[in-house]
Nucleic acid binder design. Sequence first.
DNA 1: GACCAGGCACATC
DNA 2: GATGTGCATGGT
Length: 224
Amino acid sequence: MPHRENATLRNIYDLLWAEYGPQHWWPADSATEVIIGAILTQNTAWKNVEHAIKNLKQADYLSWLEIRNIETDRLEKLLKPAGTYRIKARRLKGFVETLWKQWEGSHESLLSGPTEEVRCRLLAISGIGPETADAILLYAGNHPIFVVDTYTKRILRRHGVIDDSATYGTIQSLFHQELEPSAENVQVFNEYHALLVELGKRHCRTKAICTGCPLEDLPHKEQL
DNA sequence: GACCAGGCACATC
DNA sequence: GATGTGCATGGT
């Protein structure tokens, strides 16, 4: 038997990068679109989000001013393909109101400053939790922060890097210990999260054992 | 027809 | 502070 080291976050990254290469995330044309997508994708398959964003684009509503002015029930109709459309319409409206009241309608203002401070601002907005906040920080604001999602937890648990008691914060700290949250690592955080989602979609959606998975040579547990 | 998808807020224990 | 529940569509 070859000697196998414990899985580290670095070698997981290297394996995924070697297999899949750059993912070019976030799939969006603007920071505005990133933020809207981040809110719409909550508990929702990305394909459905794309449909809703397409609706907004076609109606020319993909700007904060338009979101602010649109009637709520009209917005709800456009968001319908993304699911939980009433909640999501309310969340977008709420986000825009905060933008207007506190940041002169500018997401650049909201997103500028020390990462921890901006993160607190985002978390204070209703409808934005840790994952959504971090996705916005990283993909719309280029802040060096790791986005932990369901796939991340599932994959790391499966390979024994974390146990069931790991929380969002502890998992994120793990990444930040191994990959310093500095400007030069923004691109690594960007790709790493995207690569984990890609791996998750391909291999960790079912309870089947990961055959053909780029991480199959790492130690792993049978169950999710 | 069940189950899941790139969560979050709120109620309750 | 841990756990449960509503939100709701579209794909497999």
